[in-house]
Design a protein around this nucleic acid. Structure first.
Lengths: 109, 109
DNA sequence: GCCCTAAGTTACATGAATGTACCTTCTTGC
DNA sequence: GCAAGAAGGTACATTCATGTAACTTAGGGC
């Protein structure tokens, strides 16, 4: 953990609020297992370095599992841990709210 | 709205992921109405400028209401909009997860 | 007349987060 | 023996979010 939190929600936000973390988690929810390259294709605008970093942080926080196959070329698979799956309901609510927010904003324009 | 989103969860994260926004929303959930100074006391480490900015952004996104009383010295009250209240369940889940994450991390140390 | 008050604003500085470009690895297919 | 492939690492640059410090406003209490 990183610092002093005055409210438990800050913990969750710290863990989830990277620029790409939410989307990564959502995709892992749907697909169970994804390789690095597959995730990269799903997020066309993320850079290699940043994607690696976001995945490492999610791993360090215990949300995802990283399985390396000692092959060449390399093969690395990512999946949600049980612990990460405990965020499923939250992530789904956030997606739903986001969808309705988009619709709301489009109505007013 | 700010940019192209590839997934609806990005919208919610954009709206909620300021450094102080989650906590502000949680406090407004509990207290109904808070003055600027009260919020500031609840977040002892936020700077004046940043707090103002976060509140303005939440207002612009329709989550909170800002009521100015034309008095001197000024009086400004903030409260959740109905729309902001639709995030209640999400915020509560996030708080719960955060609490259990803290407990989990403390066990391993 | 002067200071205090609450909720700002402004100009400037800093740091963290993210991006770009290029290097590495070893094996298989040609 | 050369290139391609997947998943990185590294050095450096840039951008974005926050922070600091000082100024503003106008009425009430002294």
């Amino acid at each position: 953990m990183r610092k002093d939190y005055s409210h438990p929600i800050e913990v969750t936000m710290d863990v989830v609020c990277g620029k790409w973390k939410g989307v990564i988690l959502c995709h892992l929810q749907q697909s169970e297992v994804l390789r690095f390259g597959e995730i990269k294709k799903l997020l066309p605008n993320v850079s290699q370095k940043t994607l690696t970093l976001q995945l490492r942080e999610l791993e360090a926080d215990g949300l995802i599992d990283r399985r390396v196959y000692p092959e060449v070329p390399p093969k690395v698979e990512y999946s949600l841990t049980d612990y990460g799956r405990e965020l499923e309901a939250t992530l789904n609510l956030m997606s739903d709210w986001g969808k309705s927010h988009v619709e709301k904003v489009e109505l007013n324009s």
